[in-house]
């Protein structure tokens, strides 16, 4: 039962993350899409901890857009990305796992074995995403003023208790 539930969560997460990548026009599932997928795991402790930290799905999207705008500004491009025309998504495209998502998965597995508690769960995945010091997610969360260390501690506690 436990195993089936864990499998279900993984399937749902992959579906959410892939959908987030599709809507983003991305050919790959990246760490930010995994984070968006985790925020969409309704009724889960992981999604609740994210929301309590100010990281609902919409808040994550806004933070990612601000990171995009700020990084464009470094190159002298000043635009509101919300004003960009939205291309039609490709419903048949199946984004593959990208490099940053692979790194997150690797870190999630490291966390799962370090914290015990058996199989890899949503909280481990979130730890894997949060443990990246570099990249879009880290920059976006820092810009949004998120206390990553405090959030990480709460998620680690939940993971230790097997509460995903």
């Amino acid at each position: 039962m436990q195993t089936n539930q864990a499998k279900d969560v993984r399937a749902v997460l992959v579906r959410h993350a892939r959908r987030a990548a599709q809507l983003d026009g991305s050919s790959t599932i990246e760490a930010e899409h995994v984070l968006l997928g985790l925020a969409e795991l309704e009724g889960s402790t992981t999604a609740r901890l994210l929301a309590e930290a100010g990281l609902s799905r919409d808040e994550i999207k806004a933070a990612l857009d601000r990171e995009w705008e700020q990084s464009l500004a470094v190159a002298g491009v000043r635009i509101e990305v919300g004003q960009l025309p939205t291309p039609s998504p490709d419903p048949a495209r199946r984004p593959r796992i990208g490099e940053s998502a692979m790194r997150s998965l690797k870190r999630a597995m490291d966390n799962a074995s370090a914290l015990g508690g058996g199989r890899i769960g949503a909280a481990h995945m979130l730890l894997g995403v949060l443990d990246a010091k570099l990249g879009r997610v880290a920059r976006a969360l820092d810009l949004a003023g998120i206390d990553r260390a405090a959030l990480r501690a709460r998620v680690a506690t939940a993971a230790e208790q097997g509460d995903h």
Binding site: G25, E67, W68, S71, L72, A75, V77, L84
Partner: peptide, 13 residues
């Protein structure tokens, strides 16, 4: 990060 942001912009455009 600016390089990544510009690639994202070019892809979106």
């Amino acid at each position: 990060a600016a390089v990544v942001a510009l690639r994202r912009l070019a892809d979106r455009l």
